[in-house]
Write a protein that binds this DNA or RNA. Structure first.
Length: 414
RNA sequence: GUGGCUAUGGUGAAGCGGUCAACACUUACGACUGUGACUCGUACAUUCGUCGGUUCAAAUCCGACUAGCCACCCCA
């Protein structure tokens, strides 16, 4: 039996890589337009970074991390998400000293040990962006608008933006207490999972899809009614900015996040097209994270989107590269002439293909067709002797006689 | 970690106990001795995820294992 890839780790084959490049290029273009610069950080970090930022009691840290001990006895973890590493770098290199307002984006593989399913893999890829140093809801709104811009630019208008506010360390405890009080009386109506959540993370009960739980939580207190003045103003501000740019969104007071560091604004881009993996991108504000990791008290906000999920939404769209010209040759003698011509054209930036191993002309023409070459050119003894030949436009079969020099060929191609 | 489903060539698949494992696509070569797409011809699974069992006989029945998919949990 041949060796196969690890469960949940996928190859991105040439037929799909074009789609991935389209996504990545679009993200880079949109993000850079918005003033974000790329930051590249390692795929592994000390385990402690993640347990401290994401939260010890979260599922990610409790059961989904690829953690191991290296030869120096250090506990190392393959990053399960990007923000922690980016903020570690931000603090470690004191980027805030130059300018506390940093706009950073990153992209790359993330790792989570979960059972794979549609749109969820053990190695998956995210593109994320972060803004540090801005308290004003303007930063929230810019990040959200940029996300919406990205999806539009990618040709996807389906995912919907949902926003919520989780409050801050001031007001969240009060809300949590109110919710616990409410749920306590209906504990017997909740599913087994929710009974467990009730003690570990009561906010999650609101997110449960079991009909009994949905019903039991109908009159539950909303986070939005328990926000303190500051959080209330902030959330209103975010909405105001979104309204002013006519960015469509809806408020989902039941939206909960899986990472502990979120405060105030949280959001998701959701789709109904990916089965149970409805979130294509998600993020929020993390005002306490940087100081929690040993940096100064600087706020932050950001998001990450799942590339596999975006790629799935894009479907089987073709992004293949077509050659401009295919050169067919009739004999070994002509091939060196053709090779030289191809070389000149490649140097000029023309995409050229030629036959590699002396196949029949029929085969070569078939190949030109299969590669979807725009033009073909047959080179035989006559062409080599006369220095002229005929370029055939594959689309309609018309031929153009011309001298076989790079500049003449380029003229026909343009 | 839990549950369900499925495993036949490069791909999509027929086959449901008994002659060479259909068919389609892909690929290669040819019909056209210097011009593709359409058409036609030829070739391409000593073998049906793996191991074991039942049987005179198994891709077809049984068991175990493995893998994949989907769902739950959770999440991008």
């Amino acid at each position: 039996m041949a060796i196969t890839a690890i469960k949940g780790f996928n190859d991105i084959l040439p037929t799909e890589s074009g789609r991935w490049q389209h996504i990545e290029q679009t993200a880079r273009r949109v993000f850079e337009l918005n003033g974000f610069s790329e930051i590249r950080v390692p795929v592994m970090e000390k385990t402690e970074l993640f347990s401290r930022s994401i939260g010890d009691a979260t599922d990610i840290v409790e059961k989904e991390m690829y953690t191991f001990i290296d030869k120096g006895e250090n506990s190392i973890t393959l990053r399960p998400e990007g923000t922690a590493g980016v903020m570690r770098a931000f603090i470690e290199h004191k980027l805030y000293a130059q300018d506390p307002v940093a706009k950073l984006y990153y992209l790359g593989p993330m790792f989570r040990y979960e059972r794979p399913q549609k749109g969820r893999y053990r190695q998956f890829h995210q593109i994320g962006a972060e803004i540090t140093g801005v308290h004003d809801p303007l930063a929230d709104a810019q990040v959200l608008n940029m996300l919406v811009q990205f999806f539009r630019a990618t040709g996807l208008d389906e995912p919907q933006l949902q926003i919520n506010s989780l409050g801050c360390p001031e007001c969240r405890p009060g809300y949590r207490a109110a919710l616990v009080g409410f749920l306590e009386s209906r504990l017997d109506q909740l599913c087994e999972d929710c009974k467990r959540r009730f003690s570990t993370n009561p906010l999650r009960v609101l997110d449960c899809k079991v009909p009994g739980c949905v019903e039991a939580t109908i009159g539950a207190p909303s986070v939005l009614d328990h926000l303190c003045g500051g959080c209330q103003d902030h959330f209103t501000g975010v909405q105001g900015y979104l309204d002013s740019t006519a960015t469509p969104y809806s408020i989902n007071p039941r939206m909960v996040r899986g990472l502990d560091y979120y405060t105030r604004t949280t959001f998701e881009m959701v789709t109904g097209l990916l089965g149970s993996q409805s979130a294509v991108a998600a993020g929020g504000r993390y005002d306490g994270l940087i100081s929690q990791l040993g940096g100064p008290a600087i706020p932050g906000i950001g998001f990450a989107m799942g590339l596999e999920r975006v790629a799935l939404l894009l479907g089987a769209q073709e992004f293949s590269i077509r050659p401009d010209l295919f050169i067919a040759t009739l004999g070994a003698g002509e091939r060196s002439f053709a090779f030289r011509l191809m070389h000149d054209l490649l140097r000029a930036g023309i995409r050229v293909e030629m036959d590699y191993d002396g196949k029949s002309l029929k085969s070569q023409m078939r190949r030109a067709d299969k590669l979807k070459a725009r033009y073909s050119l047959v080179i035989g003894e006559n062409e080599v002797n006369s220095g002229t030949g005929a370029m055939k436009r594959m689309e309609d079969g018309t031929q153009t006689e011309l001298p076989l020099r790079a500049e003449d060929i380029m003229r026909v191609l343009s």
